[in-house]
Design a binder for these strands. Structure first.
Lengths: 336, 336
DNA sequence: TTGTAGGCGTTATCAA
DNA sequence: TTGATAACGCCTACAA
């Protein structure tokens, strides 16, 4: 058995009350006593039982994040960075991070959310990769459960979130490509259920309008946010009678897959065809050629989300809605 | 307030005892009663308080993993896949996964381990990226705390682990390169405190011996397991009077960085220089050119580790030590 | 400044 | 087959 507050009290011949208060930094305990308590507690390797504390205080000091992906093929650096941000920030507030995995809109996802909420396993939840109609947001909202999100839904729900203005970003990206002489610009998107697809596609289309390019539906195609998805989608684009001279991926992975497809078709990326993505995580810098991308500061966003969530948990009436502009990072994949 | 077992009992006009037992599937409760209980519990959205259950049962139904990295630059797909595996397998056993981040051997790391163990926050811990002298293994071992590891240490400690035979793998890799006509083979490694560096370097050296190549210390250089580290290390290699004709990266990220450096030097990877890595996560397939690598099934290994850990937690005397052979995946980066 | 005691929500022991 | 009751370890109002 681990050492409990009782053991410490017994050793000190004090009541557990005093020990508890000394350790929690109350000021109604004699300095000398406190010193002794702290000293002995450390010696004995005492740390309060999390379960007991949770039960008593009705809070868990933990937040949760459910990775909206599962199975063998999930290696989006976005999630790594996001989790690192969540973890680092949580830790610095003495909160723990609970992580689980479930495919979007799967029964498994639903189960996990219900369990976490009903069992009071976490004090709050971080959402990412929002959907236009997002049952998670609805569910948490209905249950008055604290949550924050990376991105918004199209439902009328009030919750704090951070939004990267991908629409504006993609407009800029199209402009950039046009300036480099590209006019036949394809877009490889994602499932329409995701908000990100809605916004980015719209940004792409606005970009075309801004530059007086007629929208060609055959240049818009659906991927699945993965490298393989981008690869396969790009191959189909190259089959077109009039193939594109530029490809925008809904995210970096998609763009990376597209670059591979281009190369297999004997095209030189950055010359024969321009390719660009979105996210700007570390890896985009090291592709061959380096990938032009819209950078969102995933790590920092994650940290901020945790801060917002903790404020919300602490009862502060956070009504925040932070809009961030992505940064266009021009590299060789659209160069020349 | 969330609904408690008392609420359910009151509604049913039963004792909380009966409700508890009905829900936990004890057989000393009338079938009819059980049905009613389950029915009503679901209706009311009841789920047992995790904290209370933990306190009573003295177990948490959670396991922990501390990502041995922190800060902005952590995007190793190895961790994504590893976490996905841990998460999926945990979930399927109704366990939760607690995740934190801390740089190897940092005070922060120590704090987290102590907190998790002393506060009984998790029932067991998964370790990865082992060190030759690993205080984590020692600490957990000393405290009789259940843990399993991906890789071994050089201490005399007994614990279940899965080991990928990187040494054999790197021997095969060297052989492969030699067969492709490379003889000046460099190795970009990692900090010597990691077991992986020890093993892989040895495999590299054995490979040289096997093929009668004299070991040249100037071709061995230290990276930091990141793309940037590989990039910078490779640049230094290219400054040598007699630069290498092949580079082996201690992991894929290192190799990816090296490829970038090669390209900047005007070298064609797969022709002017061969590059190979280790890990074989999804991204290695989509580099330009695709990367030759030694694949370890990170996702599956993670799942198996969880199984071993849960068995250990359940009290089964697991003395397992699983050795897996990595698989050489030949792609264009060493081709031609 | 310190101690007593009640209760957080469960599960498990024992009795009915 | 069901119910009363005692912990699990901690925090905190209240008493001393």
């Amino acid at each position: 058995m681990a050492v409990t507050i009782r053991d410490v009290a017994k050793r000190l011949r004090l009541s557990i009350t005093t020990v508890s208060r000394a350790l929690d930094g109350y000021d109604d305990v004699a300095d000398k006593t406190r010193e002794r308590v702290i000293q002995v507690a450390r010696e004995m390797g005492y740390a309060p039982s999390r379960a007991a504390r949770q039960l008593r205080r009705q809070q868990t000091d933990a937040i949760g994040y459910i990775i909206p992906a599962s199975g063998n093929h999930f290696t989006d650096p976005f999630f790594s960075e996001f989790i690192a941000g969540l973890g680092d920030e949580s830790t610095s507030h003495h909160f723990d991070l609970l992580v689980s995995t479930a495919p979007p809109d799967s029964p498994a996802e639903r189960e996990i959310f219900e369990r976490w909420v009903q069992s009071r396993l976490v004090d709050g939840i971080v959402l990412s990769r929002m959907r236009l109609r997002d049952w998670r947001a609805k569910y948490l909202s209905d249950n008055d459960f604290p949550f924050v999100a990376h991105g918004h839904t199209h439902q009328r729900l009030k919750y704090p979130y951070i939004e990267v203005d991908a629409r504006a970003g993609f407009e800029i990206l199209v402009k950039h490509l046009v300036e480099r002489g590209r006019r036949r610009i394809a877009y490889i998107g994602a499932s329409p259920r995701f908000t990100l697809q809605y916004d980015r596609l719209q940004g792409y289309q606005n970009g075309l309008v801004n530059t007086n390019i007629t929208f060609d539906p055959s240049l818009v195609i659906e991927g699945d946010l993965s490298r393989t998805g981008g690869y396969e989608a790009a191959l189909r684009l190259f089959e077109l009678a009039k193939p594109p001279t530029a490809i925008i991926g809904v995210n970096d992975l998609t763009a990376i897959g597209a670059m591979r497809a281009a190369r297999e078709k004997g095209l030189v990326v950055g010359k024969d065809i321009a390719v660009a993505g979105y996210d700007g995580t570390d890896d985009s810098e090291h592709t061959q050629p380096p990938l032009t991308t819209l950078r969102q500061q995933v790590y920092d966003i994650a940290r901020q989300l945790v801060q917002m969530l903790l404020a919300r948990i602490a009862g502060e009436l956070v009504e925040s809605k932070l809009i961030i502009q992505p940064e266009l990072v021009v590299r060789e994949s659209t160069g020349g």
